[in-house]
Amino acid sequence: MKLITHNMLTSKCLKGVLTGYPLAINATDVKVNEVDFNPDFIARIIPKLDWEVLWRAADSLGHSEGLPQVVESNYEANQEFLKTAHKVLLEVEVEEGYLTCPESGRQFPITKGIPNMLLTEAEVQ
């Protein structure tokens, strides 16, 4: 699971859960896989993100180095910033671990890089 995916993932489908966001990450295996750097794409994605959630997720995985806590203005032109954001969003991957719903405490396992968000019928809203 990449952090770009984590940034949009919720458990709000759980019965009784309102936002289910952000999901806490517990990782036992984190990898960094190289992905082609596409500055235009990264610059376009930044306004869509919840930056604070991204920063905290990166920090919890030990990958917040060089990542500003707040996005500065003119970030589109800052190659160094875009590269750091690229690495955190696309290259850092949680291979094994689990996600936890902030409201219900329900855990979602991450196995071989894939979070399992499947619910039982009784858990669905």
Binding site: M8, K12, V35, I114, L118
Partner: peptide, 22 residues
Amino acid sequence: VTNIDAVQCDFLSSNICRWNNY
């Protein structure tokens, strides 16, 4: 290929995305 990220979920009932129109 390294820029594809997979999630296991039921698309019809899981409502897994925080925002609409993402």
